[in-house]
Design a protein around this nucleic acid. Structure first.
Lengths: 344, 344
DNA sequence: TTGAAAGCGCTAACAG
DNA sequence: CTGTTAGCGCTTTCAA
């Protein structure tokens, strides 16, 4: 149950003064005499007074809550972003209320409704992989409720967003593969309607182009972002008559799934097939062989998203700033240089 | 900014009735005439009325917020537990406010204070590895503020808690190693004052005992729960004159760190050294070789913790129920049977 | 069957 | 320099 917290009224009664005097004294209002101020502050300190956020919220019409919607809370990728958001939010005296859409559009819509009921002051969102229309977010925009997207964004809505430069990253990977002797570079992508899939595809194509490689549509497969589906996609690639000699996956899960599957089918990494993914530092180094990957600046992405949020909450005006974070390619064993194959 | 939400007052004005009538109608109060009730509910629906939780909270003195403190938010272990807590919380109409202590006692203390300021109604906590006194939690208990521990608990406080049966798990691992031909079984433990370290040590010793193996104190090393420290601990074991032929680590991080280090030093797993850890399903299967591990029922642990929380919030009485969750040993390659060594 | 009023904790305009 | 009052949105007792 918890004992009732101390209130201004309690302090006022104890000192025989009015509530407003106490209120003012605690804010060092110049109207209050120094003696009185000191006396009141001392008592407040002693009684451990802290203002009731509910009362303040009611008065000011603000809950100091931000609704955060992510596709999945159980991956390092998102939890790290959330940490970044949280840090900035805390600095501003805000909470975040985290909800997972579980990659489901339906759940995402419900999440928006529920968070709205809870009177969050705005939203920071990464779209679910299923989300292909945006009515539920359009409504927020119409009502001038602050909204910021990160990673998977909806460009049309014209809201601020923060992205990682996946296009650049995939180009780098592609060229890196080529430079290490790969000619048939395959790419396991995510759902086509997601901006991250699209951007990364562009980078892939540009990369091929710059290397003078032809685009073979068989070498680009899509999958939803589950392990199972990623394994199937890998199998598909491995069944090609003209097999790939390099594969990269569009995220953590896919990269690992591909690795499992490639090894299972008896191919050597990187001798037979080079591998790369989008993952974080730690797990890339634990797998065998250590995985070449582009490291997403996740924490920073969260920070930037939160900063954008506070900008739009403060200005009150909607801006549509777009922050693009650089991504680094970290080369490890899984994409080491191919040795010249013996002549048959 | 967001347009103001609709209020009872708005509805009342629009219909030319009093606020209390509207309030009652929305609760189907029998005093209100059916016509009126219907009319009011229809308008509320149309205007998308939802009650203001701030106002309700102020009235009822409840924030519907639970403070959750974990040592680290960025691991699958905790994020999965958090998911479990969240699910149950949501069912009860509660939010959780997550704070990470970053394994620091100081931050943990601050977290408690801050959450208290925010008027959370109670706490669900996993102790930081540094926490060796409990004044900050004792204060909560004294003030009858609901508190539930999970995984790393403080027994003395007499608050409800949920644990995994680490003692049983370590016994099983030890025996499993022995049955597969290991004789010098090493154990990398966490900080000694943590209950999980203590329990698992007991299981380890019992296991050795049941196998008729002597306890060699050189084979049990402690480390704080960082990767670096775990690697050092592993090195220590590998430098022993009489080396271990099996190692298990007390958590995810340690198990992986040990794996990296063992491989780095050129030992084969499991031929030279068998390995096992406490980890979740996915990562255990991605590493090479796949890691034998005890799978923590993390999601369930979160659910149970939240259930205990609501029990204690509802009853108002503090109970000290203790829930012990079973742990399963999942055998994989990293601890496969040793082949008989050739006679030298 | 409905309305008026008090109160949850707080601030701010207005009086004194 | 300090107190009174109204009001944020809601429920609930008391009155009508």
């Amino acid at each position: 149950m918890g004992k009732r917290h101390i209130s201004l009224k309690d302090l006022a009664k104890e000192l025989g003064v009015s509530i407003s005097t106490v209120s003012r004294a605690l804010k060092n209002h110049p109207d209050i005499s120094p003696d009185m101020t000191e006396k009141i502050q001392a008592l407040a300190e002693e009684r451990n007074y802290t203002p009731n956020p509910l009362a303040m919220g009611l008065l000011r019409q603000q809950t100091k809550m931000i609704g955060v919607i992510v596709p999945d809370i159980n991956t390092h990728f998102y939890s790290s972003i959330i940490s970044g958001i949280e840090k900035v939010a805390e600095d501003h005296g805000y909470f975040i209320v985290i909800t997972s859409s579980n990659e489901s559009k339906k759940k995402e819509i419900i999440a928006v409704q529920n968070l709205l009921k809870s009177r969050v002051e705005g939203f920071i969102v990464c779209l679910s992989q299923e989300t292909d229309d945006f009515a539920h977010f359009q409504k927020l925009v119409n009502n001038e409720i602050p909204l910021v997207f990160f990673d998977r964004v909806c460009e049309e809505l014209g809201v601020p967003s923060v992205l990682a430069n996946g296009q650049d990253a995939t180009k780098k990977i592609t060229k890196h593969f080529f430079e290490n002797g790969c000619k048939r570079i395959a790419y396991i992508s995510g759902p086509e309607h997601l901006n991250i899939s699209q951007n990364r595809k562009v980078g892939y194509l540009n990369g091929l182009n710059e290397c003078g490689l032809e685009y073979d549509e068989n070498l680009m497969v899509h999958c939803n972002l589950s392990i199972e589906d990623a394994k199937l996609a890998t199998q598909e690639l491995l069944q090609l008559e003209n097999k790939p000699d390099a594969i990269f996956g569009v995220n953590d899960t896919i990269a690992f799934a591909a690795m499992i599957e490639v090894k299972k089918q008896g191919y050597k990494i990187p001798e037979d097939i080079s591998l790369a993914g989008f993952t974080d530092e730690f797990h890339s180094t634990v797998v065998d062989p250590p995985l070449t990957s582009v490291s997403h600046p996740t924490f920073q992405m969260g920070e930037e998203a939160a900063k954008l949020f506070f900008e739009s909450i403060e200005k009150g005006k909607s801006n549509n700033k777009r922050i693009m974070l650089p991504i680094d390619l970290v080369v490890r064993e899984s994409s080491a240089k191919k040795k010249a194959k013996p002549f048959i």
